[in-house]
Simulated assay, not measured.
Amino acid sequence: MASGKKRSSKKEPLEFRNTALTDALQTQDMAAVAFALRHGPTVVPLMKPGQRDDPLDAGEVWTYRDPSTGDLALLLFSDAAHKPATLPPAVALQSPAWLRAFLSTHEREITTVFFDIAGPHPLQASPADIIAALDA
């Protein structure tokens, strides 16, 4: 006799990575980086994760402020495995549209954007350069 319980289907775990971005950073090919940013997600560290029941709550993005200059940097990752353990543990997988909107909103405050800052293949760009790559 059936127990009335539905068997839960095993879902593949969500992968917090953009393989195309990882590959583009490895070769430092700026055209490939731009393509990967336009067509795939970016791993974003969070101070506070969003509410699971609210799809509009993306959480609070973690940024780095240099204590000596006050400059604000946005750290992004091609793979959650590249995020240093010293950063807050929560991450979000954000779309190209989200990245474009976030950078547009905070372009005056953010002085630089780092990709995979701790390696294996870091890249630094200005918010304006990232916006231009997303718009290309």
Rank of each mutant, 00 (worst) to 15 (best):
M1L: 11
A2H: 14
A2C: 01
G4T: 04
G4M: 08
G4V: 06
K5F: 15
K6S: 13
R7A: 15
S8R: 14
S9K: 15
S9F: 10
K11A: 13
E12L: 10
E12N: 09
E12G: 01
L14G: 00
E15W: 09
E15C: 12
E15G: 12
R17L: 15
T19V: 15
T19C: 02
T19P: 05
D23E: 15
D23G: 03
D23V: 09
D23N: 13
A24Y: 04
A24H: 02
Q26F: 09
Q26P: 00
T27L: 08
M30F: 12
A31S: 14
A31Q: 12
A32W: 02
V33F: 06
F35N: 14
F35W: 15
F35I: 08
G40F: 03
G40C: 03
P41C: 13
P41S: 14
V43G: 11
P45S: 06
P45T: 06
P45D: 05
L46M: 08
M47R: 12
K48G: 00
G50C: 05
G50P: 06
Q51E: 13
Q51I: 12
Q51W: 04
P55S: 05
L56D: 14
D57K: 14
D57F: 07
G59H: 05
G59V: 02
E60L: 04
W62L: 03
T63E: 11
T63L: 03
Y64N: 07
Y64Q: 12
R65S: 08
R65A: 08
P67L: 02
S68V: 10
S68A: 14
T69Y: 01
T69A: 03
G70R: 01
A73I: 02
L76S: 07
F77S: 06
S78R: 05
S78V: 07
D79T: 04
D79C: 05
A80K: 15
A81I: 10
A81M: 05
A81L: 11
H82F: 11
K83R: 14
P84I: 10
P84V: 07
A85L: 14
A85R: 14
L87I: 00
A90V: 03
A90R: 07
A92Y: 08
L93G: 11
L93W: 07
S95M: 06
A97L: 09
W98F: 15
W98I: 08
W98N: 05
L99H: 00
L99K: 00
R100K: 12
R100Q: 09
A101I: 00
F102P: 03
F102A: 02
T105G: 07
T105N: 10
H106W: 05
H106D: 01
E107Y: 08
E107W: 11
T111Q: 07
T111M: 04
T111P: 00
T112C: 00
T112I: 06
F114G: 09
G119P: 05
P120A: 08
H121W: 14
H121Y: 12
P122A: 03
P122Q: 03
A125M: 15
A125N: 02
S126V: 00
S126A: 03
A128D: 02
A128H: 10
A128M: 06
D129Q: 12
I130D: 00
I130G: 03
I130Q: 00
A133F: 04
L134W: 12
D135R: 11
A136S: 09
